[in-house]
Design a binder for these strands. Structure first.
Length: 505
RNA sequence: GGCCCGUUCGUCUAGGGGUUAGGACAGCAGAUUUUCAUUCUGUAAACAGGGGUUCGAUUCCCCUACGGGCUACCA
């Protein structure tokens, strides 16, 4: 087997969709598993669709996801350049080689000509007109025009394209690594343009030439390319090159209804479809990103891994090395997968819980600073210990703002339900005095003293705890009140109790 | 329309000629928790339909239905 070299080859026409990230991931894992190379090639042969910033976005997004190429745009390598626009001069000789070998021809029909023919055909109820092995004989090309006229046109600089001369009555078959044998009849394929009149190759030519010259061993790409795979196979044959192995990935579908996942679905259902936030340079419209929403890149990747691939056992959480070890193309599913935002959240929760407290504290601190709260890392770590089990995102731990500042208001419903003017204050004051006498203000110590206190006073849990919590936090929900007390410290507890009694009476 | 690809719980999936068709997310119900969350336990939930092949098919083959992709001088 030749050395594994795979590529991810997006077009810089906008932000990278999560489906693209998954394609990149599978390529990356496959390369790593086989000690191969993973390259990033930018396919920018369509100047009309170029979007500024898109290329940078792609590079940054892959970096954030931790699936970095070891060769390609932004990384360099022996096959540079990796941007097709910079490889422009390379392609024409290949197209000419094809013409010389009888695999391609010049065509002089303009876009307008073709549009007209298609319109006419539609009117005649032949909705699917193609420039193919039959119709080409009625068109203006180097197959139908006299040789001297062709030369004259070429010399005069008439615009032309180069088309592939699709053979007639042949079967193209190739073995897709995911689907098995796939068979096409050349009679259904058209004479695709390989080289455009603007001097640029089309995707098909550029892709095949680059894959060959970059020594790509496996082409792992989206299913939308399956219909053009036979053309690519034929191109390799025409060039007398060894074709890479193909694997066509099923698509990611929208969570509800039918069809492939699109930007609109994210807006509509409230989840990102892009790894990073993207601002459209034309409209200024913002599309949300997983990074900005507070997802861990590893959780995002782990989710993507399992969307269309399964290890065969019940493992769901994978380290990068485990992914690399377990990944095989054969275990990629054949059918499209509906994206599940809920499960994505679940993955994030799993990763959050697996993250050490001090790391979470480091992530939480900047968020606190934004809110004007400056506390020590040690203190933040205590907060994390208290809040992490109820959080899906780091940001969720901010819900316990009472860990940083005492309540100024009290939940009205809770007050009317639990607080009895005159009575409650007396009990709470007693309990506060008991706490005040405590040397050790750890959770265990407070908890222990609390139980004693209940015995001494002959009171039930429910008679004191909710009141205490209310004064501490202003609400009736959250972590154990004694734990909150321990984190904020004795002095603060006393302050809050005093404030509460004062305020509620 | 044509061509190609696909179809196991609501969703992601495991499985594979004889299984109580397994797991996870989401759902529901209980337990624990002063509360919320967590956790635990339990529960409901699937082989698209029809023909073959076979002693036996969810598994293999065919057809239909449904879904998806492609059908540009876009990738």
């Amino acid at each position: 087997m030749r050395k594994v070299r795979v590529r991810f080859a997006p077009s810089p026409t906008g932000p990278l969709h999560m489906g693209g990230v998954r394609t990149a991931l599978y390529n990356y894992l496959f390369a790593k598993k086989h000690g191969g190379d993973f390259l990033l090639r930018i396919e920018d042969t369509d100047q009309g669709r170029f979007v500024p910033g898109a290329e940078q976005y792609i590079i940054e997004a892959l970096k954030w996801c931790g699936i970095e190429p070891n060769e390609g745009v932004g990384y360099g390598g022996d096959c540079a350049p990796y941007r097709q626009s910079e490889r422009k001069p390379m392609y024409k000789p290949y197209a000419e080689k094809l013409i010389a070998a009888g695999w391609a021809y010049y065509a002089f029909d303009t876009s307008e000509d073709l549009d007209n023919i298609r319109k006419q055909a539609e009117l005649a109820k032949m909705p699917n007109w193609q420039y193919n092995s039959i119709s080409r004989m009625t068109m203006k090309n180097s197959l139908t025009l006299p040789v001297d006229e062709v030369e004259k046109r070429l010399a005069a600089g008439d615009p032309y394209v180069i088309r592939f001369k699709m053979p007639r009555n042949e079967e193209v078959r190739f073995q897709d690594l995911i689907r098995g044998w796939v068979v096409f009849s050349t009679n259904e394929l058209d004479d695709k343009v390989l080289f455009k009149s603007d001097g640029m190759p089309t995707y098909h030519l550029a892709n095949v030439v680059d894959d060959m010259t970059m020594n790509i061993s496996h082409v792992i790409r989206g299913e939308e390319w399956l219909p053009s795979a036979p053309l690519h196979v034929l191109l390799y044959k025409a060039f007398e090159w060894e074709a890479p192995l193909f694997a066509h990935l099923p698509l990611i579908l929208k969570p509800d209804g039918n069809g492939k996942l699109s930007k609109r679905d994210g807006d509509r259902l409230g989840f990102p479809v892009f790894p990073l936030e993207w601002k459209d340079p034309e409209t200024g419209a913002i599309s949300s990103g997983y990074r900005e929403k507070g997802y861990f890149p590893k959780a995002f990747i782990n989710m993507l891994l399992l969307l269309g691939w399964a290890p065969g056992n019940n493992q769901e959480i994978f380290t990068e090395q485990e992914m690399i070890d377990a990944f095989t193309i054969e275990r990629i599913g054949k059918s499209g997968s509906k994206f599940d935002p809920d499960k994505t959240r679940w993955f994030n929760q799993q990763y959050l819980r697996a993250t050490p407290h001090h790391e979470l504290a480091q992530m939480l601190q900047p968020l606190l600073k934004e809110k004007g709260i400056d506390v020590s890392l040690e203190y933040t770590e205590n907060v994390v210990g208290l809040m992490m089990e109820r959080a899906v995102f780091v940001e969720d731990m901010l819900e316990g703002m009472y860990l940083f500042q005492g309540p100024t208001e009290f939940d009205a419903e809770a007050v009317s339900k639990k607080w009895k003017v005159g009575e409650s204050a007396v009990i709470i004051q007693k309990w506060a005095d008991a706490m005040n006498a405590l040397e050790d203000f750890s959770f265990e110590s407070i908890d222990h003293r609390f139980k004693e206190f209940l015995q001494e006073e002959n009171l039930g849990m429910g008679a004191v705890m909710p009141l205490f919590r209310l004064l501490l936090t202003g609400t009736l929900t959250g972590p154990a009140a004694a734990q909150v007390a321990s984190v904020i410290g004795k002095e603060e507890v006393m302050k809050r109790v005093a404030f509460g009694i004062e305020k509620l009476g």
